[in-house]
Amino acid sequence: MGKTAENIEYYLDSKNDKDYLQDLLLNIKEAYKNQTKLTFRIVKPKEKGFLVKVGGLFAFVSFNHFGWSYPSIEFWRNISNSLIGGFFSGKIYQVEENPISIQIDAKEQEFENRNLIKGSKYRGIILRKTKYGFFVDLGLHFNWKCGSILGLIHISTFLKESDYKNWKVGNEVETVFQGYNENNQPALGDIIERGKWRNGEMEKLIGTVQKVTVSINESGKPEYYVSGEHKATVPIKKEFYPNLRTTAKKYTYRLKDGEIIDCEIIKINRKKDSFVLKLQIEPPMS
């Protein structure tokens, strides 16, 4: 019996609660039979999933049946409280009556396309702290309408070292989107210049020949700067100069402060945010 204007007094009588619950359960069974997609609201996190409300009844969605996945359950436990009150959809895959138990599969979600703008700030939740930075989920910024957007704030991109020491998992933080790294993962952080070394922008220069400025330091040794600003090294290795190592050494000895030379970018050094270069030299005339 469904609730209508004619029988509302019936439902106001507390002794008829069982009938009302039975009607709700019948609706859930019908949705289960037809595999109808239902909207549910997250009520609170549990050990291995979420207690949710669907069709007026409580149900359960496990982490394994949610709309996205994380590398470990640690991530789920650190994000769970931020999902309370969120609305998602799913299909009933198990129903029991005594006691009532409803299981929902919410793997198939219709999320909006994410449109992260380089250089823009976004809010996120810290899910893990490592020695090289923080894993942060920016899904919060879009009220989870775009699902999970997991990125990394590298320790080298912090404007304040105290942030790395003081931030904790579960904290809501604000960070800048720097672009995507080689794994198509959002690179995050406050120092935009450092972000270029994390989002693949600098890797695009590998194999190209660039103008390099030479600066002679106090020890009389040359230092190298691509485009006059990005640090670089010029290792005189056999693999780079199979038959020209001696020629390459003599070439570097003769370099003058402020001189501009052509070099090929061989690779990048991520630890030092610098380029590895190969001199563009010709074999000596015989």
Rank of each mutant, 00 (worst) to 15 (best):
T4Y: 11
E6V: 14
I8L: 14
Y11R: 01
S14Y: 12
K15W: 08
D17Y: 07
N27V: 05
I28Q: 01
A31G: 04
A31V: 02
Y32P: 00
N34W: 07
Q35N: 15
T36C: 01
L38S: 10
F40R: 04
V43R: 08
K44L: 11
G55R: 01
L57N: 02
A59C: 08
F60H: 11
V61H: 04
S62G: 13
H65F: 09
F66G: 01
P71Q: 13
I73S: 15
W76C: 04
W76G: 01
W76I: 04
F87R: 08
F88R: 00
G90Y: 02
E96M: 13
E96F: 14
N98P: 02
P99Y: 13
I100H: 10
Q103E: 14
Q103C: 08
Q103G: 07
K107H: 12
E110W: 01
E112R: 15
L116Q: 03
G119D: 09
G119Y: 08
S120G: 00
G124K: 00
I126F: 00
R128P: 00
K131H: 10
G133F: 05
G133Q: 06
G139V: 04
K145W: 09
S148I: 09
L152F: 06
H154A: 12
I155W: 03
L159N: 15
Y164K: 06
K165C: 03
V169Q: 13
V169K: 11
G170C: 03
E172R: 14
E174D: 08
V176H: 02
Y180R: 06
E182F: 13
E182T: 13
A187L: 07
E193G: 00
E193N: 04
R194G: 01
N199V: 03
E201W: 03
M202D: 02
T208H: 10
V209H: 09
K211I: 02
V212G: 00
K221M: 07
P222R: 05
P222Y: 06
Y224L: 05
V226K: 08
S227N: 15
K231W: 12
K231H: 09
K231I: 04
A232C: 07
T233D: 11
K238L: 08
E239M: 09
L244W: 05
T247F: 00
A248P: 01
K249P: 00
R254H: 09
K256A: 05
G258R: 08
E259C: 02
E259P: 06
I260S: 04
I260H: 03
I261E: 01
I261M: 02
E264A: 11
I266R: 11
R270I: 07
K271A: 13
K271H: 10
S274G: 12
F275N: 00
L277Q: 01
E282R: 10
